[in-house]
């Protein structure tokens, strides 16, 4: 429910630090390992979980996330199993918001109403669907909002002042600012430009603004967290999974631990963010 997301951002505001939003691919490299990763994220310092739903043709993603999706699909993952991960996770954690990130077609084929009902029941809080811009709100955004599931929209450097209100309209949960024109996993651009863009968006909305695409290190997280309400890290986490696998693409004893160690480092960066801002 929306409440989980709002409560989380209120608590972080009181704490005076930005959120660490962690993306990983559901089902990569297999269901059990990825569920273990998901369960370990909050303790490692993740405030919001972005659960990647694999798609065969991820047009907005770089090679790392495309390969992660292929590994998950090869291991038999599906949208139904992605919902099941939320359900399993909620057995131990009822406070960490979960946002499903993916593409529209698997949801369209599953059935929009059926998907939303099951996702809500499982404990999903929000959706980021890359290929559903504001013009397509009737497809999923409006039905999701009727159930109090957040629809989190991407805003980008190409979203100009004229277009921003249209993008923010019907947005909820938080606003995801894409730091660059490009795909996930590209190089991070100038952080002062990002800070300017975040300030522009914040002038138009009360929603928290999180920044993603290109954030790879604790230092990046610290710099961006100085101005944003949250920092999204995805490809770098997915890479931790990828490099820990054996030659057959199977999980090893290191897989979960390498993600935990990496996310803990990011969490340290995030917690130092506002110290920079205060300087």
């Amino acid at each position: 429910m929306t409440a989980r997301m709002d409560r989380k951002f209120e608590a972080l505001k009181a704490e005076g630090r930005p959120a660490l939003v962690t993306y990983f691919m559901g089902g990569d490299p297999d269901y059990d390992t990825s569920l273990e990763i998901m369960k370990a994220l909050p303790a490692a310092g993740a405030d919001v979980i972005e659960l990647g739903a694999p798609f065969s043709d991820p047009m907005a993603d770089g090679p790392a996330i495309q390969l992660a999706g292929q590994r998950a699909l090869k291991a038999g993952h599906s949208l139904g199993k992605t919902i099941q991960m939320v359900r399993d996770f909620r057995k131990q954690d009822d406070t960490t918001p979960i946002v499903l990130m993916g593409y529209y077609n698997p949801i369209y084929i599953y059935g929009v109403e059926k998907f939303l009902d099951e996702a809500l029941e499982a404990g999903l809080d929000g959706l980021i669907i890359v290929d559903l811009p504001a013009e397509m709100d009737d497809e999923l955004c409006i039905p999701a909002r009727k159930r109090d599931i957040n629809f989190i929209r991407l805003t980008t450097p190409t979203t100009d002042a004229k277009r921003l209100p249209k993008v923010l309209d019907n947005s909820s949960g938080f606003v995801y600012y894409v730091s660059m024109t490009g795909i996930t996993g590209s190089a991070l651009p100038d952080t002062t430009k990002i800070a300017d863009a975040v300030a522009r968006i914040k002038a138009s909305t009360d929603l928290p603004v999180c920044v993603g695409f290109g954030v790879k290190t604790a230092e990046h997280a610290r710099l961006i967290g100085a101005s944003a309400d949250g920092v999204v890290v995805g490809t770098a986490i997915v890479n931790q999974v990828a490099t820990s696998l054996d030659n057959n693409g199977h999980a090893t004893a290191d897989t979960v631990q390498s993600v935990v160690t990496f996310v803990s480092g990011l969490a340290t960066g995030i917690r130092a963010a506002r110290l920079v801002a205060a300087e």
């Binding site: 529209y104 013009e135 991407l154 980008t156 190409t158 277009r163």
Partner: peptide, 19 residues
Amino acid sequence: DGRFGIFGGRFVAETLMPL
């Protein structure tokens, strides 16, 4: 809106919408 009946449309990432 670029629709032929239920088909067509504009299912693209926000970055491409203005373009």
